[in-house]
């Protein structure tokens, strides 16, 4: 799976309350989540996420198990998230809904072109290559099916 996009850089310990606040959770309307994603971090961010690769600090997605967090990012157009580490429930949730993650630390600025090859385990930023912690074969299988629901439809 190869992904490319412009970097949007944010800091460490981005919690799921910041990704999508509790006040927006009581709905099944995904547009509400994508419109308000990361609003409490930066209210101007959501429209800039279409086609973006988020490059974050460590412990991305800590806190609540709310699956609306990765869904909101994916619906807003985020193609991949690159971070040195992810909180584990967020990690599983993102893969399960088909949002690719790359676990590695990169040097990057807003707007830099970021490409990721998750099978090869490589992220490239401005011509420099970084090796990611590899996704397990099971995680890759889920991602390649577009998520766990997609995999269930194929395998039953």
């Amino acid at each position: 799976m190869k992904i490319e996009g412009k970097a949007v850089c944010i800091g460490p310990d981005i919690d799921t309350d910041i990704i999508i606040a509790g006040r927006y959770l009581r709905t099944k309307d995904r547009r509400i989540w994508s419109e308000h994603v990361l609003e409490d971090l930066d209210p101007t961010l959501a429209p800039r996420l279409e086609g973006a690769v988020i490059v974050a600090g460590s412990n991305f997605g800590c806190g609540s198990s709310r699956e609306q967090a990765p869904v909101a990012l994916k619906e807003a157009g985020v193609r991949c998230i690159v971070a040195p580490s992810f909180a584990r429930i967020f990690y599983r949730n993102a893969i399960n809904i088909g949002l690719p993650l790359a676990e590695c630390e990169v040097s990057c600025h807003d707007g830099d072109l970021v490409s990721a090859d998750l099978e090869a385990g490589i992220v490239e930023v401005s011509g420099k290559q970084y090796r990611t912690r590899p996704l397990s074969p099971r995680m890759l299988e889920i991602l390649n099916a577009g998520g766990l629901v997609g995999l269930w439809k194929v395998k039953g």
Binding site: E67, L148, V149
Partner: peptide, 29 residues
């Protein structure tokens, strides 16, 4: 449990951990 604080039940010597909605749907099935 589909809640991050499912770890509370480790107090009973259970292996108790939080999962998201899609993981839980697969557990139901």
């Amino acid at each position: 449990g589909a809640d991050s604080h499912t770890c509370t039940l480790g107090a009973f010597g259970a292996f108790a951990t939080g999962v998201g909605a899609t993981d839980m749907a697969a557990v139901w099935a």
